[in-house]
Design a protein around this nucleic acid. Structure first.
Length: 447
RNA sequence: GACCCUAUGGUCUAGCGGUUAGGACACUGCCCUUUCACGGCGGUAGCUCGGGUUCGAUUCCCGAUAGGGUCGCCA
């Protein structure tokens, strides 16, 4: 029988990076084994759950490319889904829960207590055969010793997580439960529940948690904890995915950057590490840069145009060839697309501020005549292309008896407002003679 | 408080009784270079501690310590 795994988030309005990693590991295992990846929405908390919150989860998984074989097609709990074992929203499965609870009640495995229904938990230690952690004997804690039974239906009639999670895994024929290690201690309860229902529990694989760089628990408020930061922050999903694969899993051959298809091929449960991993944003950024550099042109343009648009630059007002030429000078230079407006905005507006430090350093009295001389030489450079412009600049520098850099910096500042950026000669070529001369002339009037 | 998991540089990791403890990110020196970035060549930095087992422990066992998790009518 092929494995059936599931990702079962509750719609809280956020998709946590840890949740995304859990989804990823489930997805990887399903794809590796040719099994089925089920998405189930645990929306039992009617007070908190909204359709918009479900969209956050669906959008996040889609952005990452973690497609599910069974589960909802839309965020509408009563809407369409794929798969034969739905509904895939817990809010639509209440009849199942009621029937299961009745069965427990009638067999004396559960009882009513102050309006709630409690499950008669075994008093014996339970051994969890975990595929990642190994055999774990879970004894009762001191509080559990006093009352090992736990509530499965609240006094308001709503079933609780432990119950519905188990019933759904059972009824959806889930074979492997791959989830965060925060559930390891709870697993004894789940196993007892499965046994009470007369079925063998699924295999468990508890994966380590993702902590902050300093080792503290990552909460929603922590930097980088939520998926939307990456979706909106100019990240590439392949970079995020690759980075997530490297936390608690390793290809073991000293490679860091590897395509998802290869991870799918090599991924398996037993080789997942046991220790919690810390989230290193710098390393993610590095991978992001690696992937950004080798992006295909069309996708690169698309992402750039989108980022520039968000930064207030309407590239549609410029000829497509100009836009492409401008963006080509940025390829391989930026990591995050959100950097682009500041990095390349000068291509798309004439009104930009000069970098103050650059002004101090480069717009100096002795540089003014130099820039003037270069301006005149540029005015007659023919054709107006990078190689010729470079030759012109170096010739003028030679005539002035200064290094090229002396001319390069004021020119860059005059034409872009920035102290760093794309290759100067190439950006001049893209801007064209008219704009370059205008910008140098304008700069010359400021100092 | 009880129970559970974990422990290799700052971070992610390779290692599975004998290695000059390997790689990556970050940091840093030099080179390349108009800037930035990339790239190339170096550098700093590590087996938590204490007991065992063994001819020999980073590696196996026990304990301590530290970190994380759970013990809810949250999920």
């Amino acid at each position: 029988m092929k494995p059936r795994v599931r990702f079962a988030p509750s719609p809280t309005g956020f998709l946590h990076i840890g949740g995304a990693r859990t989804a990823l590991f489930n997805w990887l295992y399903a794809r590796h084994t040719g099994g089925t990846f089920v998405l189930r929405i645990e929306d039992t908390d009617t007070a908190r759950n909204t359709q918009a919150a479900v969209d956050v989860i669906l959008d996040g998984l889609r952005w990452l490319g973690l497609n599910w074989d069974e589960g909802p097609l839309t965020s509408d709990a009563t809407g369409p889904s794929k798969g034969n074992l739905g509904p895939y929203f817990q809010s639509q499965r209440k009849a199942n829960y009621r029937a299961r609870v009745e069965a427990l009640l009638s067999r004396g495995l559960a009882y009513e207590d102050e309006g709630a229904i409690k499950f008669k938990m075994t008093r014996e230690p339970i051994v969890i055969h975990d595929l990642v952690v190994g055999d774990v004997e879970r004894k009762l804690t001191d509080r559990e010793e006093m009352d090992p039974d736990f509530v499965i239906v609240r006094s308001d009639g709503e079933p609780v997580f432990h119950l519905v999670n188990v019933i759904d895994d059972l009824e959806m024929n889930i074979t492997h439960v791959i989830r965060g290690e925060d559930h390891l201690s709870n697993t004894a309860k789940h196993i007892a529940l499965f046994k009470a229902f007369g079925v063998e529990p699924p295999k468990y694989a508890h994966i380590p948690l993702i902590l902050n760089k300093d080792g503290s628990k990552m909460s929603k408020r922590d930097q980088g904890a939520l998926m939307n930061v990456y979706m909106e922050g100019g990240y590439l999903p392949e970079a995020v995915l690759n980075y997530l694969c490297l936390l608690s899993w390793s290809p073991k051959d000293n490679r860091e950057k590897l395509p998802l298809s290869e991870v799918v091929e090599r991924f398996d449960l037993p080789q997942i590490l046991r220790a919690n991993a810390r989230f290193d944003h710098d390393k993610l950024l590095w991978l992001q840069g690696e992937y950004a550099r080798e992006l295909g042109s069309d996708r690169f343009y698309e992402l750039c145009v989108h980022a520039l648009g968000k930064g207030g630059f309407d590239t549609n007002r410029f000829p497509i060839e100009y836009v492409k030429a401008a963006l080509d000078t940025c390829k391989g230079k930026i990591r995050l697309f959100t950097e682009l407006p500041a990095y390349a905005g000068f291509y798309f507006t004439d009104s930009f501020e000069y970098n103050p430090d650059g002004v101090k350093k480069d717009f100096t009295p002795e540089n003014k005549p130099r820039l003037q001389k270069l301006r005149d030489a540029i005015a007659s450079t023919e054709p107006f292309v990078a190689a010729g412009l470079e030759a012109t600049l170096k010739r003028v520098a030679g005539e002035l008896g200064v290094k090229a850099g002396v001319l390069v910096h004021p020119t860059r500042l005059a034409c872009t407002g920035n102290a760093a950026g794309p290759s100067l000669y190439h950006l001049l070529e893209v801007l064209g003679r008219e704009k370059v001369l205008q910008r140098i002339d304008r700069a010359l009037t400021t100092f």
